[in-house]
């Protein structure tokens, strides 16, 4: 790593974070199961296939429109397993509580967690709590580990991706990023944008039901770093280029207008309830049709495709122009006008 100190940019899902993981963690901890390009490890236990993931949650503020850190922790863990082609079964939970935290807030958060867990049909089977002195934590941090059974008809790996494969997104992007940002700092704006935080397993389950493992290449959930970072990862790992179509990116008008005012690109913002799929072109319409019948899937869209004509992520703009997208480097900051 070039940097001497950890900065916030090491946590934003972009280039810095990739360097942090590759240069420090992966290089020292490598083993046969650790693959830092995947959201979960694949394990064989008692002759059945399992996936295991872990995640940490430090969102500020603890409550935001559409959810709170509790529901987010469940969704985040379940979703990492889902895009690894597994149905979450059991979770562990570590809660780091800061001295002075309001017990009522904690109760509300854990109740939301219980509701999210029930809805995702998982059990939180073990846990631990620690209390940190005042000023040493943002109220609550959660760390979770989840294991889930792998679905039989999905064999997901970015190495399966071919030129011509389509990229599908299950719903509008950027809502979570903007909802949290506005809950944190109102910027003198008001809106009714809510987070998209949700369990995305139904979107994966219906792909499994298609029983076409060779045509569903890879799934990811565009959390930190947004859709752009994920597509950049795919492009880098497959050594293929990606053509995105601006017209086809589902973005709610309110999200677009806040992004416009603050100088953010919606495709760099986190989602917590969306899936991105790379699929064979002949399967794209079938998948979209299935997704559009699901709750929150009405705006599912084919946003682009892989190409061997170049190795960059290029967006065709609404007017037919081209714009090369770069991997996010530093933390986005609101701009002045």
């Amino acid at each position: 790593m070039k940097e001497k100190k950890i900065s916030l940019a090491h946590g934003n899902g972009g280039v810095y974070m990739r360097e942090l993981i590759d240069d420090i963690f992966a290089s020292k901890l490598h083993n046969d199961f650790l693959n830092t390009e995947h959201d979960a490890a694949h394990l064989k236990l008692n002759n059945s296939d399992w996936a295991m993931t872990t995640d940490g949650f430090t969102v500020q503020p603890l409550f935001f429109p559409g959810g709170n850190i509790g529901s987010l922790a469940i969704h985040g863990t379940v979703n990492d397993l889902a895009v690894s082609g597994a149905k979450a079964k059991y979770l562990s939970l570590n809660a780091f509580l800061e001295e002075g935290l309001d017990i009522t807030d904690l109760e509300i958060i854990v109740s939301s967690m219980a509701i999210a867990a029930k809805e995702a049909q998982i059990d939180i089977v073990t846990g631990d709590t620690k209390v940190l002195p005042f000023g040493h934590g943002g109220g609550i941090y959660f760390a979770t580990t989840g294991i889930g059974e792998r679905l039989k008809n999905l064999r997901l790996n970015h190495s399966n991706i071919q030129p011509g494969d389509k990229i599908l997104v299950s719903g509008p992007i950027g809502n979570h990023g903007i909802a949290v940002m506005m809950a944190r700092e109102a910027f003198g704006l008001s809106s009714d944008i809510t987070s998209d935080s949700a369990n995305i397993y139904p979107f994966v389950e219906c792909l499994n039901a298609l029983n076409t493992p060779e045509k569903i290449k890879c799934l990811r959930d565009p959390t930190r770093g947004g859709l752009n970072m994920l597509v950049q990862d795919w492009s880098r790992n497959t050594k293929l280029g990606v053509m995105l179509k601006e017209d086809q990116l589902p973005i709610e008008p309110a999200v677009a207008s806040v992004c416009n005012m603050l100088g953010y690109d919606p495709f760099n913002l986190a989602c917590e309830g969306r899936v991105l799929a790379a699929v064979s072109p002949e399967l794209a319409q079938d998948v979209l049709q299935l997704w559009r019948e699901l709750e929150c899937g009405e705006q599912a869209s084919c946003v682009g495709e892989f190409t061997c004509e170049h190795k960059q992520v290029v967006m065709e703009t609404s007017i037919g122009g081209q714009r090369i997208l770069q991997a996010l480097e530093d933390e986005p900051l609101p701009r002045i006008c």
Binding site: G263, D265, T317, I319, G320, G321, R323
Partner: peptide
């Protein structure tokens, strides 16, 4: 400049 560049106007 931002609007021009983001829309890729130079390329059309």
């Amino acid at each position: 400049e931002r609007s021009i560049t983001q829309a890729g106007l130079r390329s059309v």
